[in-house]
């Protein structure tokens, strides 16, 4: 059994996803079967294999280091659930 309920709770916390107890139960079962499925890879000895770094057959290009704010402040703020003229607004962080 690769994963148990307490680990699922921990991963949910790391993923910033709230889950009720019912969901944790059903997801634990699913995650366990998925992880069991992917553990098939352990059949393979990969000690000598180099890790694949990129599937793109090219070196990534660097652009010139020029500051450009894009002049799209309003566009960026447009879809925000809560904002004022210049900022995204979020619930209180410090008590």
């Amino acid at each position: 059994m690769p994963i148990d309920k307490s680990q699922v709770k921990k991963v949910a916390k790391l993923s910033r996803i709230s889950l009720d107890d019912n969901k944790i139960n059903s997801l634990s079962k699913d995650l366990d079967s998925i992880l069991t499925f992917v553990e098939k890879l352990n059949e393979l000895d990969t000690k000598e294999i180099k890790t694949l770094k990129s599937i793109a057959d090219k070196t990534l290009e660097a652009r010139n280091d020029i500051v450009d704010d894009g002049k799209i402040k309003n566009d960026i703020l447009k879809n925000s659930p809560e904002k004022n003229e210049d900022f995204f607004i979020v619930p209180k962080v410090i008590e």
Partner: peptide, 23 residues
């Protein structure tokens, strides 16, 4: 839930807002 997309109105602080939004 900050820059775009759905935001949950539940949660007492930023962390809970994140978790509820994604949940």
């Amino acid at each position: 839930g900050v820059k775009f997309g759905y935001r949950s109105n539940k949660g007492k602080n930023l962390l809970e807002m994140y978790e509820n939004t994604r949940g």
